[in-house]
């Protein structure tokens, strides 16, 4: 006898997420760096910022620390980056 079983996974709803447009160059842009609080993440991001400024012409950077690696940046960080930065670097693993 045929057995009909139901799917426990979720079906994708086909929602589209629009990425922010990429700048053609980092020349003169301000960089925001999201420190996710992992060990040494600030040191790694500081080096990345130095490369973006030295080799790609970024003008300045600010780094802000999330409350925990597992949560999104809190609103103050988002607001500060929106008003004071042109591009943001996020995503540091272990």
């Amino acid at each position: 006898m045929t057995v009909q079983i139901y799917d426990p996974t979720i079906e994708a709803k086909g929602r589209r997420i629009n990425y922010a447009p990429r700048p053609k160059s980092l020349e003169g842009l301000r960089v925001g760096l999201v420190d996710n609080s992992k060990f040494n993440s600030d040191q790694l991001l500081t080096r990345i910022a130095a490369i973006l400024e030295k080799d790609y012409g970024a003008k300045a950077h600010i780094m802000r620390r999330k409350r925990s690696a597992g949560v999104p940046p809190h609103q103050e960080i988002v607001d500060e980056f929106k008003s004071g930065c042109d591009v943001v670097v996020a995503g540091i693993g272990d």
């Binding site: 045929t2 057995v3 079983i5 139901y6």
Partner: peptide, 19 residues
């Protein structure tokens, strides 16, 4: 939810593994 057919209970268990 989506559903799938299996010929019998034993093969339904295998289908759960396969998916």
């Amino acid at each position: 939810s989506r559903s799938y057919d299996a010929p019998d209970m034993a093969q339904a268990i295998e289908l759960c593994y396969a998916r």
